[in-house]
Design a protein around this nucleic acid. Sequence first.
DNA 1: TATTGTCGGTTGCATAGGCAACTACCTTTG
DNA 2: CAAAGGTAGTTGCCTATGCAACCGACAATA
Lengths: 159, 159
Amino acid sequence: MQPTIPLAKFLPYQLSITSNAVSGRIAQEYRQRFGLSVPEWRVMAVLGDSGALTQRDLTQRTLMDKVAVNRACKVLEERGLAARTPNAQDGRSHHLDLSDAGREMHGQIMPLAREMERRVFAGFSAEELDAFSSLLLRVRGQVGDLDGDTIDSRNFGIV
Amino acid sequence: MQPTIPLAKFLPYQLSITSNAVSGRIAQEYRQRFGLSVPEWRVMAVLGDSGALTQRDLTQRTLMDKVAVNRACKVLEERGLAARTPNAQDGRSHHLDLSDAGREMHGQIMPLAREMERRVFAGFSAEELDAFSSLLLRVRGQVGDLDGDTIDSRNFGIV
DNA sequence: TATTGTCGGTTGCATAGGCAACTACCTTTG
DNA sequence: CAAAGGTAGTTGCCTATGCAACCGACAATA
């Protein structure tokens, strides 16, 4: 046993390595089973639930960089999992929606996602998870308040 | 207000974006004030607390990739913040320790780190933070159990 | 309607980060 | 002590990610 290491007590550090571990584990699963990256999966998850959206909508709902959204959409389209249709209201953007194949895959992915969430957070009560969730939300709010140059959290009802 | 989006309720997702927000905020601070990356800062934090260590020790204590540790060490040495001395016990490795300049910087950084932690987690009780910390630890344990191919958490007293 | 500013989407570039292979050295086994 | 296998550190490569600049289209103002 080593002496107490302050870094290990540093909460941002704990948060970072835990998040990395969880994300890495989940990313590995999606990659192996579906060949999807995390950004691609996120876009699919939102599309499958919301129906056709523009990339702008997707950046808002996923909180990802618009470039990340763009690239994920491009891949999904190339793989035939999603299709773009012109946006009559705005010539700059398209409506992106899942294809039948994409919807089929979405149907397989979401149960897997829930299952992985269940396993990773196994052994916690609903109260603990609620508290955890709300703490994450409040922390995010704190950082947003401190940090003027990033996303404006007031724009996101979903956060 | 948008309809409820499942992605926003997905705990791994919440964890990820919160961690990114916190890490990004902190990384920005270290970069601006000291020109340090997060890996570099982590190495400094451990070195400043533990005294001379090998890169192997540092990879264990920071949980970073050995390449990340190596590169951080190289930068610190080039900047004169740390120095390597031969390891009499093992010709393959060196003992790395902070220089006077590095120790000086360490003395400035650690209070800043604590201050940022305090601000990011402002408004939470000690009990909440303890619960949060132990939940992160348990989640990390779960992922480690599920995931055979990454780090072996049993090696790390610090985790 | 011409101008100016803004916005969605795209591309290019620059950086970070991880994996795999390699070197030099250590350790174990016969 | 020779051989075989393992380990610390290093380098190169490849991918992921983000920013900044750009293009075409919309919006506001005159």
